[in-house]
Design a protein around this nucleic acid. Structure first.
Length: 241
DNA sequence: GCGACAG
DNA sequence: ATCTTGTCGC
């Protein structure tokens, strides 16, 4: 069978924050650059990439994957992976500082940039309105959305149980995202605008990318690929110690 | 101060 | 995220 393409080596930027206060300061600066109007690509056109990461905290290793699908057919177009050191601990609200170096490296390894990036997590639904998807969008200039599996600190009325039913995700005041049923009778996903895509359109993208399962195909593919990349990287390490 | 908290 | 077997169901 075809050999898996070698993962790109992740290099953490020299100015990457190392403290929580430093990371929050970066968020407070970059949040001004978020574009909430877009409109970004028409759902079902061009390409959409899913990005995800897997960790081996014991070895301080992270593997990222970027999987590009044809937005109309959901057929794979291209994929890339990256492996490197874990640059930041998991801190709620600071997830981007843990995931972005590897994710950006994988995205940069693609021959053609995608028309949309779908992140595993939140965009503007975030304590400082600058979650992973927004951060990625601002740094790359690519339209991005966040599709999370948990409501994080937000609340929402239960959406109806049919596919497409949705309710506002709020912090008690403003709507920061949408609880969206992608599959009848299954827990909703939590969609928020990242960068360059308005919320309603982010929801439309999510529904088109998730025709059969709870999570978008982009996310499912990226999740499978980053896990495989991590296993491959660990396997190599064991072979020559 | 305590609890809760995307992945 | 990750630790983890079998099991019920389409």
């Amino acid at each position: 069978m075809r050999a898996r393409p070698a993962p790109a080596a992740v290099t953490v930027p020299a100015d990457w924050p190392t403290t929580e206060a430093g990371a929050r300061a970066v968020q407070d600066t970059l949040r001004a650059r978020v574009d909430l109007t877009g409109p970004g690509p028409e759902p079902g056109t061009g390409t959409a990439a899913g990005v995800d990461v897997a960790y081996d905290d014991g070895r301080g290793l992270v593997a990222a994957a970027a999987v590009v699908l044809d937005a109309a057919t959901l057929e794979p177009v291209e994929e890339a992976t990256a492996v490197g050191p874990v640059p930041f601990p998991y801190v709620p609200g600071l997830l981007a500082f843990r995931e972005l170096p590897a994710v950006l490296t994988a995205l940069a390894a693609l021959a053609t940039p995608p028309g949309l990036v779908v992140c595993d997590g939140y965009g503007v639904a975030h304590p400082r309105r600058f979650g992973l998807a927004s951060h990625l969008g601002v740094l790359t200039g690519l339209p991005s959305i966040g599709v999370a599996k948990n409501p994080f600190t937000f609340t929402h009325p239960a959406p109806g149980d049919r596919r497409g039913d949705q309710t506002p995700l709020t912090d008690g005041a403003e709507e920061v995202g949408r609880a969206l049923r992608t599959r009848a009778g299954v827990r909703p996903v939590y969609v928020s605008a990242g960068h360059g895509v308005p919320l309603d359109r982010a929801v439309a993208h999510t529904l088109r990318l998730a025709p059969a399962y709870r999570l978008p195909e982009t996310t499912r593919r990226a999740d499978a690929l980053c896990r495989a990349a991590l296993r491959a990287a660990l396997g190599e390490g064991a072979g020559r110690g």
